[in-house]
Computed example of a mutant assay.
Amino acid sequence: MRILTLSLVTALVAACSSPPPLPTAEDAPRRPINTPEAVEFQSCRHALHNGRIELRESREQVARQASRLVQWAQQVPADPPAPPGNTVITVRFAYGSHDADLPAAALQALLPAARQAPLILLRGRTDGTTDSVAEARIARDRAHAVRDLLVAAGIEPSRIRATYQPSGDAVADNSSPTGRDLNRRVEIELYRVAPVPLSTQALVAGENVP
């Protein structure tokens, strides 16, 4: 028994006196965190994260703006009802001009009624005394200028008809400056109801003819 105990003690002393095993290195490749590639990768990650935050904030801002626009549209009053019968509004022009420059008050009175009219008839006029080419061009350009103004304000072009007359059809004495100022004009006739074309048979029979 004594011999066995001595053998165990000798083995333990020998084990404690031997040096510990050396650490072994892993075969997996290691990449230092401060390499240019690693730095660039981290920068891309941060940029992606910040981009996602900006995109979310932009979407929230667009949603808020859309909500305000909907609320604003619901608060805009509707156009007042059109008066019964056709309405005629006259636009005056300077001598030799075809610039349709309407005051804001005139536009506020014209546009709501024009939006409700199924047909808009424009008649361009001058203060000329003869049917010359120059007078015809001015009368036509005045009617087209008013048509372009209405289309720019949102009126459908298919509801607008433009005519012109170079001379005649005066509304005032054309021999005076004041009368000539009144004759240089475009008449805007707003129809409350679109005219219905009559057939040849109806015209012959006299139907629906006042």
Rank of each mutant, 00 (worst) to 15 (best):
V70Y: 07
V70K: 14
R125F: 08
L122V: 06
A113W: 02
R140G: 08
F93I: 02
L110W: 01
R115L: 04
P77G: 07
V76Q: 15
R123Q: 14
L121C: 07
A139D: 11
D99S: 05
I155C: 02
A104M: 01
L149I: 00
Q116L: 07
A136S: 14
A136F: 03
D127W: 07
S67W: 01
S67R: 11
A104N: 12
V133W: 01
P118Y: 04
P81C: 03
D127E: 11
Q108D: 15
S132L: 08
P80H: 01
A106M: 13
P83C: 07
A145I: 03
L69F: 10
D79G: 00
I120P: 00
A134Y: 05
R68T: 09
A136H: 11
G96W: 03
I120R: 00
A78N: 12
G124Q: 01
L119Y: 05
L149D: 13
V91R: 03
R142F: 08
W72D: 14
T130F: 04
P80M: 07
D79N: 13
G85Q: 10
V151L: 11
A106Q: 15
A106K: 13
R115W: 00
L102G: 01
I89D: 08
D101M: 01
T126N: 11
A114E: 13
R123Y: 00
A109V: 04
A109E: 13
A114M: 12
V133N: 12
R125P: 03
R68M: 11
Q116S: 10
G128K: 03
A153H: 15
D79S: 12
R115F: 01
A82K: 04
L69W: 12
G154L: 08
L149Y: 06
R115K: 13
R125A: 09
A105D: 15
I155Y: 05
R137Q: 14
R115D: 05
P81T: 01
V88S: 06
A94W: 02
